[in-house]
Design a protein around this nucleic acid. Sequence first.
DNA 1: TTCAGGTGTATTTTT
DNA 2: TACACCTGAA
Length: 630
Amino acid sequence: MSQLNLKQLNEKQREAVEWFDTPLLVFAGAGSGKTRTIVYKAAYALDKNLVKQNQILLVTFTNKAAEEMRKRVNYLTGQTLPHVGTFHSLAAKILRRDGSKLGIKQDFLIYDQQDQLSLIKEILKELNYDYRQIKPRSVGYNISVAKQEMLTAADYGKLARSYQQEIIAKIYQEYEKRLQQFGALDFDDLLMKVVDLLKTKTEILEKYQNLFKYVFVDEYQDTNTVQYQLTKLLAQGHKNLCVVGDVAQSIYRWRGANYRNILKLKDDFPDLKEIRLERNYRSSQTILDAAEQVIKNNTSHPTLSLWTDKDSGEKIGLIEASSPRDEAKKILEEVYKWKQKGKKWNEIAILYRTNAQSRVLEEALVREGIPYILVGGIKFYERAEIKDVLAYLRLVFNQQDGVSRKRLEKIGKRRLKRLEEKLVNFDYRKYKVNEILMMIYETTGYLEKYNKEDKEDLARLENLRELEALAMEYERLDEFLENVALVQAEYYAGEMSKNKEALTLMTLHAAKGLEFSIVFIVGMEEGLFPHSRSMLDQEELEEERRLCYVGITRAKEKLYLSYAKQRLVYGSYTSNERSRFIDEIDPDLLESQGISQESFNNKSKQVQKIDDDVFEAFLEGEIDIDRLLE
DNA sequence: TTCAGGTGTATTTTT
DNA sequence: TACACCTGAA
């Protein structure tokens, strides 16, 4: 039969898997086997014939998580779940099918944040607002927040109290008009419209309520109001709902996430069953203790109390540095220690609060010849050349698309004109995506923009080659565009990105859901972490603390916290106190790391590149750091 | 269409 | 500091 064996679960996990009587809320602490529990529960429901595979709806926050769960359910049961995805992809699916009832065209485009911003800028210009007074970003943010609260432009106008808000209301109204005209929906629209659809068209609501006999929602603490509504609507039918989350890991408040949604659930489902997964399989006791000591300073929400069978393990390394450069150096000393003990590069991660901090670290890694990957940075689909070509493709798909047209006008009116002439007699449905791509290149001569001899241009051409490879995977243009809009292509920057075994650099946000043997959290300074923008507001400060909690609980064996006494911020030197989060940890759990050896200090500066052979010898443990740096 | 120069601004960014 | 963005001139 199947791979399903409930003996692989602990008691609490099993209880969660077998519970089908009433709606279920699983508080799953960091490293408590959350994914495993969801996956087993879905598999169990299939195995017991409680539902068929297409009757399970499994909503996650990232495509990566969705992919992971789909794979694992498939492994356990041999069945593939068709409805696993993000809130946004689910909404897009429903709107493509039934959106016409709300007057939404079936082939609507999806505008991302950048599209939204360009559109707002254009409107600002046309309505004669000064972008210095009315900031496009802020307008976009306000519109987004409004939509998350399901406020239409008209609603917003009625609620507007200040002059600023009235202007935003006007822009919002115009923005909506244009979206409609262009046949486009933005990210927030997807959710808002689908809730609108389900609320107003009972027959459609019933259809989906009947279809989805079981609804799972992962990372529930990060849902916003409209996502909460959507969950409620869909689950209200069979009342077979399982949501999983951890309040202490809610770190997206600034995008509308409201962890109170998880606490509010009891009001909507009075017979809600609660199960807590508090056994941690990831970290040492010391790391868990530190995490708990930090998070218990948050007073506005309850927290879980994690425990483990493991030993207390290593103390938490505390690194004090004079500057970010010194910080990087000291970190690498510790990194080498672990490398010598046999750890692989990919078991080590350096986490920071802001992207700007990555640079000094990168420089140090490059100097030492340590392979690394930098997660985040410029996203693939956000690159100018990729956006250009996608704009052409979107225009082929939908000639109403004003944002794309505007962009294409900027890169060449003649090119655009030639394409538009071609499109008069062109039916994209008859061609594969890469055939259309070739047609675009031929008609517009876009590639001539770039010179192969130029290093930067060559990189752009390579990116476009990559896009072509992606396009090959799709037959139909609409499918390709939908995927581009809703799936952020994973993209790693950095010298050594091709090297699989590499140390990871990323923001604390990006680290959520991941784990590493050795974790460094750097820049633990007041003003940086907690960030100065968050220090005045209790709610925001607590979110910073949750972020710290997320960071700490990424570590399996050894955690390091580091801070620099002086740091260059916006061009001027500032001295910051060490982060309050460090002082929230019992000093007995901490251990100051030694001052660096002078030799390392001096030599590492001179070393440009280490010989491969020497480096290899070092990896084999044949020589030590000092020899390596000679 | 391109580019130099000025100006303002500066978290995090699953979709 | 450093970068993104706008503007105006060539």
